[in-house]
Simulated scan of single mutants.
Amino acid sequence: MAPRTLAHGMGTFFKECEHPQSRWSKCPHTYVIRFRNASGQQTEESGFATQDKAIDRLAEIYRAKRENPWGQGKAERNRKYGSMNFGAYAEEWKAGQRALAPASLRHLDSLLEHHLYPAFHSRRMATFDHKVVDAFVRTMERNGVGLATQANAFDKLKSILLDAHRLGLYPENPLDGVTPPQYDPKRAVIPSLAQLGGIRGAGDETFNLIAELMSGSGLRNGEALAVNINNIVADDVYRVTEQVNQTTKDYAPLKHRKEGDYRDVPLPARTRLSLLSYADTYGTIDGYLLRHPLDIAKPYPSYYLQNRWDRIKRAGDVEIPDGMTLYGLRHFFASNCLSHNIPITDVAEWMGHKSIDVTFKIYRHLMPGSIGHAAQVLDLGLAA
Rank of each mutant, 00 (worst) to 15 (best):
residue 1 M to Q: 07
residue 1 M to D: 08
residue 4 R to T: 05
residue 4 R to V: 07
residue 5 T to V: 01
residue 6 L to H: 02
residue 8 H to K: 13
residue 8 H to I: 00
residue 18 E to H: 10
residue 26 K to H: 03
residue 27 C to P: 00
residue 28 P to M: 05
residue 30 T to L: 12
residue 30 T to S: 14
residue 34 R to G: 09
residue 36 R to F: 08
residue 38 A to D: 01
residue 42 Q to F: 03
residue 45 E to W: 01
residue 50 T to D: 10
residue 53 K to V: 09
residue 56 D to A: 14
residue 64 A to T: 01
residue 66 R to L: 14
residue 71 G to K: 03
residue 74 K to C: 06
residue 76 E to C: 00
residue 79 R to A: 14
residue 83 S to Y: 05
residue 85 N to G: 03
residue 87 G to Q: 13
residue 91 E to K: 08
residue 93 W to I: 14
residue 94 K to P: 08
residue 95 A to T: 09
residue 96 G to C: 05
residue 96 G to H: 07
residue 100 L to V: 00
residue 103 A to F: 03
residue 104 S to L: 00
residue 108 L to R: 08
residue 111 L to I: 15
residue 111 L to Y: 11
residue 111 L to M: 13
residue 113 E to S: 15
residue 114 H to N: 15
residue 118 P to H: 07
residue 120 F to K: 11
residue 121 H to D: 14
residue 121 H to V: 14
residue 125 M to W: 05
residue 126 A to T: 08
residue 127 T to A: 09
residue 134 D to G: 14
residue 138 R to Y: 12
residue 139 T to R: 15
residue 146 G to P: 08
residue 149 T to G: 07
residue 158 K to Q: 12
residue 163 D to K: 14
residue 165 H to G: 02
residue 166 R to E: 06
residue 166 R to I: 01
residue 170 Y to M: 09
residue 170 Y to G: 11
residue 171 P to A: 14
residue 173 N to R: 12
residue 174 P to Q: 10
residue 177 G to N: 07
residue 184 D to F: 10
residue 186 K to R: 15
residue 186 K to V: 01
residue 186 K to H: 04
residue 189 V to R: 07
residue 196 L to M: 04
residue 202 A to I: 04
residue 207 F to K: 11
residue 209 L to K: 03
residue 209 L to V: 01
residue 209 L to S: 04
residue 210 I to L: 12
residue 212 E to S: 09
residue 215 S to R: 02
residue 216 G to A: 10
residue 217 S to M: 08
residue 222 G to A: 06
residue 223 E to C: 03
residue 224 A to M: 02
residue 224 A to H: 02
residue 224 A to N: 00
residue 227 V to Y: 04
residue 229 I to H: 06
residue 234 A to E: 12
residue 235 D to S: 10
residue 243 Q to L: 05
residue 249 K to D: 11
residue 254 L to P: 14
residue 257 R to G: 11
residue 258 K to G: 07
residue 268 P to W: 00
residue 270 R to F: 15
residue 271 T to N: 13
residue 272 R to G: 05
residue 274 S to F: 14
residue 274 S to L: 10
residue 274 S to Q: 15
residue 282 Y to L: 01
residue 282 Y to R: 11
residue 283 G to H: 10
residue 287 G to I: 13
residue 289 L to T: 03
residue 291 R to A: 01
residue 293 P to Q: 11
residue 296 I to R: 05
residue 297 A to W: 00
residue 299 P to T: 13
residue 299 P to H: 06
residue 300 Y to N: 09
residue 302 S to R: 01
residue 305 L to C: 04
residue 307 N to E: 13
residue 310 D to C: 09
residue 312 I to N: 05
residue 314 R to W: 03
residue 317 D to L: 14
residue 321 P to F: 09
residue 325 T to M: 06
residue 327 Y to E: 02
residue 331 H to T: 02
residue 335 S to I: 02
residue 336 N to V: 02
residue 336 N to R: 15
residue 342 I to C: 08
residue 348 A to L: 09
residue 351 M to G: 00
residue 353 H to P: 14
residue 360 F to I: 10
residue 363 Y to L: 00
residue 366 L to K: 06
residue 366 L to T: 02
residue 369 G to P: 04
residue 369 G to L: 06
residue 370 S to T: 09
residue 371 I to Q: 12
residue 371 I to S: 11
residue 372 G to C: 03
residue 372 G to H: 12
residue 373 H to V: 06
residue 377 V to N: 02
residue 379 D to N: 10
residue 380 L to D: 07
residue 383 A to W: 09
residue 384 A to N: 09
